[in-house]
Design a protein around this nucleic acid. Structure first.
Length: 403
RNA sequence: GUGGGAUUAGCUCAGUUGGUUAGAGCACUGGUUUGUGGUGCCGGGGGUCACGGGUUCGAGCCCCGCAUCCCACCCCA
């Protein structure tokens, strides 16, 4: 037997229902916020992700499905969604056109990681990107949109907030932190030593308790923001307060992708194990110019659909459509052609075997049909069809011409 | 990539110190004295016990390997 590759799942039946329900719910909300769908390729030039996500990140340095194609292009399956959307934005010259452009997308992403609960090699994200708005109110809008989507799906969450600063305040802070950590380098764990070289900010959320104690007195970026970043962060908190969104400040919250600045946020769930981040995002004002576009402010987020799947509360499924069957062999052909007509307007299920009424009612119930329609010898004689409404438990017999 | 646990029917799981033909519930399927379901009763099909080796007179059970899933690290949605 051939099975699917490790970390790559089929989505069908119940899972597909949930998956679609989520996409539909999130799509409706994104549209209400004025966003438009964008679809970009699954395969992109490898350089796109090296430049946007950053070569120092684990995602790019060891988790990409990368290969040389038959035209000798260095390509890879997308490990995240933002880079492709930004590439499309620039390629369509929307950066030069100016104005505001708001997009949402959903689709498969690929990362070669060791799978566990909530972590797959092929997984799906729903994401949103906004270009051309530098107001921090847009950041608040992003957060409220995520909150709306999660609430609409009945999903509980905690929201964590941080500011990563900008070009004015981040680089000096970074130096500061590196100096602080270098002084205690002989006491920190191996991972942290490595982080100082690759992504120093990440030492702050090391899980090692010894490290945590050592970092307690480390400088915090939130206390070293420049006035612009501080004002924005204060405004963001104020807007969220006014709109009833509760949050906690997590000074150790660092986005793993290099392109983020200023606002960073993460929605976490306590119900799904260690892969607890269900949505994450923030501002990335410098990414468009990194990718050779005209400097354009931007902010976005992505949600991991598989991580949400088991948390989604689905509405109860309602009886729908028709079930049709014959109680006598001679009626099967008639049932078939009537059902074919019915399918033009309604969901219709046919049973091709002649059965007694009880079995047909059971069958109608099994497919969750609203109406059970049956033709037997009596009906054949009178050219009628017997219909039972399985919800109201009412019955009627109508002429075939009126069905 | 590192460490730990699990794997028996479609699903959830029993299976005694190694001993005849491996079980249950649900699901599926058929029947059920004259044409009324979701909720009665009776029957039926379905297992290379994940896979590959080994020990043994004999392995679902013990040993080794491997795959997948789960958990933690790591990373992140």
């Amino acid at each position: 037997m051939i099975s699917s590759l490790r970390g790559m799942n089929d989505i069908l039946e119940e899972d597909y229902e949930r998956f679609t329900y989520f996409i539909n719910t999130a799509t409706k909300i994104a549209q209400n916020y004025g966003f438009h769908f964008i679809q970009t390729p699954l395969l992109e030039e490898t350089a796109l992700f090296k430049r946007s996500v950053g070569e120092s990140s684990d995602i790019v340095s060891k988790e990409m499905y990368q290969f040389i194609d038959k035209g000798e292009n260095d390509v890879c399956l997308r490990p995240e969604g933002t880079a492709g959307v930004v590439r499309a934005f620039i390629q369509k010259k929307l950066d030069k056109a100016g104005g505001i452009h708001r997009f949402f997308y959903h689709g498969a992403m690929f990362r070669y990681e060791r799978p566990q609960k909530g972590r797959l090699r092929q997984f799906h994200q729903f994401g949103v990107e906004s270009f051309g708005v530098d107001s921090v109110y847009e950041d608040a809008t992003m957060i409220m949109m995520v909150a709306d989507i999660l609430s609409a799906c009945g999903i509980g969450y905690r929201l964590q907030l941080n500011s990563l600063g900008d070009l004015n305040c981040m680089p000096p802070y970074r130096e500061n932190l590196i100096n602080f950590v270098k002084n205690i380098e002989d006491k920190i764990c191996e991972d942290c030593v490595r982080r100082v070289a690759t992504n120093p900010i990440r030492v702050l959320d090391c899980k090692n308790t010894t490290c945590q104690e050592l970092y307690e007195n480390a400088p915090k970026l939130i206390n070293n923001l420049c006035s612009g970043c501080k004002d924005d962060f204060d405004t963001l908190k104020k807007v969220l307060d006014k709109n009833g969104i509760s949050y906690e400040i997590n000074t150790n919250l660092v986005r793993g992708l290099d392109y983020y600045s200023k606002t960073a946020f993460e929605f976490v769930s306590d119900e799904i194990g260690s892969q607890s981040a269900i949505a994450g995002g923030g501002r990335y004002d410098r990414l468009i110019e990194f990718l050779d576009g005209r400097p354009t402010p931007a902010v976005g987020f992505a949600m991991g659909i598989e991580r949400l799947m088991e948390l989604i509360k689905m509405p109860e499924s309602k009886r729908e459509g028709y079930y049709m069957g014959a109680m006598d062999e001679v009626a099967v052909d008639l049932v078939m052609s009537l059902a074919q007509k019915k399918r033009k307007t309604d969901k219709t299920t046919i049973d091709y075997k002649a059965k007694n009424l009880k079995n047909h009612l059971k069958g109608a119930d099994k497919v969750n049909a609203r109406f059970c329609c049956v033709i037997g010898t009596n009906e054949m004689e009178n050219q009628t069809i017997w219909i039972k409404d399985l919800e109201n438990k009412t019955e009627q017999t109508v002429f075939i011409g009126e069905f």
